[in-house]
Design a binder for these strands. Structure first.
Lengths: 294, 294
DNA sequence: AGGAGACGATCACGATAGCCGATTCGTATG
DNA sequence: CATACGAATCGGCTATCGTGATCGTCTCCT
């Protein structure tokens, strides 16, 4: 058994068929069949049930599947670890919340790519839950997420402290006035956004429940819709400070237990902390905080 | 890069020479050389510095080495997971403290091997620290250890509660009398035994410090030496109950914060919990407690 | 200084595992 | 019953891997 065998196994399992897996693997079907049969022979266990429209995992296959993925991740990690001589290079894929990217990362990232020309940097955005999942599967080398996070396989470090404020249309007055404005909605960036649940809890604690939601894909659209009186949202203060200064929106401070959150950087505990990643964290968590404090 | 390549690499690193590694791998030196060179070519990194008496890892090789071991462990786990159909079989290597083995495990182990004839059971003993280390490296599938244990990669479950008692020669009277008996020693099973440190702390809290130690490899020898007045030791009550009944030693109860400890079963969180292991825990932790309570 | 021994590098050869293309077989669908 | 889809099988080929012999170099011992 070999990681290459596990790779074809995983492809077959994912596609539910040897022919389709063969395409992905850039080989022929007979080859895939042979390797699966060899693997089954080696393990002395049937991994797939064959039927006329393809194949399906047996229980034994189900048990093996997670190892296939982990082996692939381990090999990429090993490769990276061996080649990484302390001088950042290669591809670096990290995740971030969109708000964190907007508020804290633009300058450090620009500085980073300027300083490390040999790194191909990729920044993917998503919700905290999505990002955690992707870090665990190895799709991301690490990610900025919204705290708190407790997971035994993740190494966590706090990089920023945020103050979340309730962003409302101008002239709303107190938060409680929302209960009289039933047409106002909660505006969120995307489904599953962790700010949404938090905002609902905050409002619920003030007796405001049952607001409809609205989802916009960009921060600008959200601020715009709040300015237009369509709804309220929860944002780090820094992001909406400009809009407030222009009088487009009204900010409402929240008590510390509601408003203060930590932005964390997470990475797999068992993975290799590449030089590229270490340098990024140093760039983002170090100088960036003073940038944010400007 | 392939787990086989990593195996070769690991053997060369461990032996510090290709010829010696070739012997272990049951092949010839030229083959090992070729594979290492291929691996170096694949990674585009030198892994070994060659000199006349053998080879030595480069920094890149040092970084790669841990992955070689992890890959090997992962493959064994994968194999076991795939073949494990819920019916215990194959080899099962677990660890235990000697005291735990003596006090709790003899009957459950006997019952276990009788019930599961297809399992080759191996029980290795050691100190808690040694056992934890061996579980982490994959040498042991799991182990009974002395609590508390907190490690992110370990899954922990409490299986027994022990009452530790101070075992002293007959006629000692109160524990404090030890301060007048400077020739008495602390008798431990082996260096690094966690009971030793605990006993020193307990005595220190009573103003008794600086006792010499004595190390015997078997529980019987320890009890014998205590009975002979050579020293004192700390043991689970169950182990020395018989000796006390015979009047050979005197037991001193300790307050709960000193005397109560948990025996835990630990295993790697990311490893496969084999049926053989699951069945063992069920046998040892379930019926065994009533056995111990007889 | 010179020779012996230890060790890695290299090379030519042979075995073999893996890949490919073509074909056959089984089964579900129309 | 015909068709189509997908897995199994087979023969041929090639790249890769393992082997044994040889070479080059360094160190240690005399």
């Amino acid at each position: 058994m070999d990681v290459q065998d596990l790779k074809v196994f995983e492809a077959v399992a994912r596609h539910g068929g040897m022919k389709r897996a063969a395409e992905e693997l850039a080989t022929v079907q007979s080859n895939v069949t042979a390797r699966i049969r060899a693997l089954e022979g080696d393990l002395d266990v049937r991994l797939f049930d064959r039927h006329s429209r393809g194949v399906a995992l047996t229980p034994a296959g189900e048990r093996l599947l997670p190892y296939a993925h982990r082996a692939a991740v381990l090999m990429t990690d090993a490769r990276r670890a061996a080649k990484d001589d302390g001088h950042p290079f290669g591809s670096l894929v990290v995740g971030s919340l969109e708000t964190t990217a907007a508020l804290h990362l633009s300058r450090p990232l620009a500085a980073y790519v300027a300083a490390h020309r040999e790194v191909d940097l990729v920044l993917r955005t998503g919700t905290t839950a999505e990002l955690i999942e992707r870090v665990l599967t190895g799709e991301l080398e690490g990610s900025f997420v919204c705290g708190p996070v407790a997971h035994p396989e993740l190494e966590v470090q706090t990089v920023y402290h945020e103050e979340l404020v309730l962003v409302a249309p101008p002239g709303l007055g107190a938060i409680e006035a929302l209960s009289a404005r039933r047409e106002v909605r909660i505006v969120v960036l995307r489904a599953g956004c962790s700010y949404r649940q938090r905002l609902e809890e905050i409002l619920a604690r003030r007796g405001i429940v049952g607001l409809r939601t609205l989802e916009f894909g960009t921060i600008e659209a959200i601020v715009g819709s709040v300015a237009a009186g369509l709804g309220v949202t929860l944002m780090p203060r820094g992001i909406v400070a400009a809009a407030e200064a222009e009088g487009r929106v009204e900010l409402h401070r929240l008590p510390p237990e509601d408003g203060l959150v930590e932005t964390l950087f997470i990475r797999r505990r068992d993975g290799h902390a590449s030089s590229a990643l270490t340098a990024l964290i140093a760039t983002a968590a170090g100088p960036a905080q003073s940038v944010a404090a400007e």
